[in-house]
């Protein structure tokens, strides 16, 4: 019994760290799910837009002296606006043809964004110091020190995920959105501007990615590859959760973070692979995903 308690004590930090990483997966897969649900576009540029969020925060700080808190609002707005421009100029032209073109287009955009950043800022990454005030949230659990900033990441990501879910499931705007997902022509016939709604949805999904990017900036090196490292896992999360399912992407994001965190202890070499093993199992047993409708 004592042994078990001891084991739990040892595992607790890993569980916490896993859930915090899961918060990033949840935020990113949520944005993907929103975009896919509404636009039917697999947004391969999502990782690059996450990176862009972190870089905009870094630019605001180092070029204009604008700190973390304003950046948390400004960077998603700026990157969201870039997303709106992308949707209007390019993505909206592809709705009528095969969906794989949308995937290729956004993948191309991701390569361009990452290439431009790499060319201008190199691959080693820029530093972005976490704001000092998070020291108040620092947690000491025996030997384990949990930085306040990671606690904040968990709080912020969970709040934003819940808020997005509430907006989509419980508000009037959300109901239009859901209706437009199912029957766009019918909703348009009721006088609702569906193309505008699609544009804004894409912008909002992109803003979510940028928000995650700002949250990640103080933890990871702000480098052009930071999004690419996440995005493959996040796509697996979306597939496991069920394509386009809002609640599914949030729950699956946290869950996979947790599973990865535990795998990092027992079989570190497999900690990236485990996500894809789960994806394979889910695809075989529930092809529509854990939360998807067949």
């Amino acid at each position: 019994m004592e042994d078990l308690l001891f084991e739990i004590q040892l595992a607790l930090p890993q569980v916490i760290l896993g859930v915090i990483n899961g918060a990033f997966y949840a935020l990113l897969s949520l944005g993907l799910a929103v975009i896919f649900g509404m636009l039917n576009v697999i947004n391969f540029a999502h990782g690059a837009q996450f990176t862009l969020g972190a870089f905009v925060a870094w630019m605001l700080l180092s070029w204009l002296g604008i700190g973390y808190w304003p950046a948390l609002i400004l960077a998603p707005l700026i990157v969201g606006a870039i997303g709106v421009a992308m949707e209007r100029a390019m993505i909206s032209r592809l709705y009528r043809i095969d969906h794989l073109y949308g995937l290729l287009l956004t993948f191309g955009c991701a390569l361009v964004i990452e290439g431009v950043l790499r060319n201008n800022f190199g691959s080693s990454g820029q530093r972005y110091a976490p704001p000092r005030e998070f020291g108040a949230l620092d947690l000491e659990l025996g030997d384990f020190f949990l930085p306040g900033y990671r606690v904040w990441v968990l709080i912020a990501a969970t709040t934003v995920c819940l808020a997005t879910w509430l907006v989509i499931e419980k508000t009037k705007v959300g109901s239009y959105l859901r209706a437009a997902t199912e029957r766009p022509q019918l909703v348009q016939a009721f006088g609702i501007n569906v193309p505008l709604m699609m544009t804004l949805t894409y912008g909002a999904g992109v803003a979510l990615a940028a928000f995650a990017g700002v949250l990640a900036a103080p933890i990871y090196s702000v480098s052009p590859a930071m999004g690419a490292n996440f995005i493959i896992t996040v796509f697996a999360v979306v597939v496991i959760g069920g394509m386009g399912s809002i609640a599914g992407s949030i729950v699956t994001g946290f869950m996979l973070g947790l599973i990865q965190g535990i795998t990092e202890v027992f079989w570190p070499e497999a900690s990236q692979t485990v996500v894809f093993v789960i994806m394979a199992i889910v695809l075989l047993t529930r092809p529509a995903g854990l939360f998807g409708r067949a």
Partner: peptide
């Protein structure tokens, strides 16, 4: 042993 490439979070390994 950490997966390469693609590992970004080392906190668990450091722990």
């Amino acid at each position: 042993r950490t997966p390469f490439p693609g590992t970004t979070d080392f906190s668990s390994f450091l722990q």
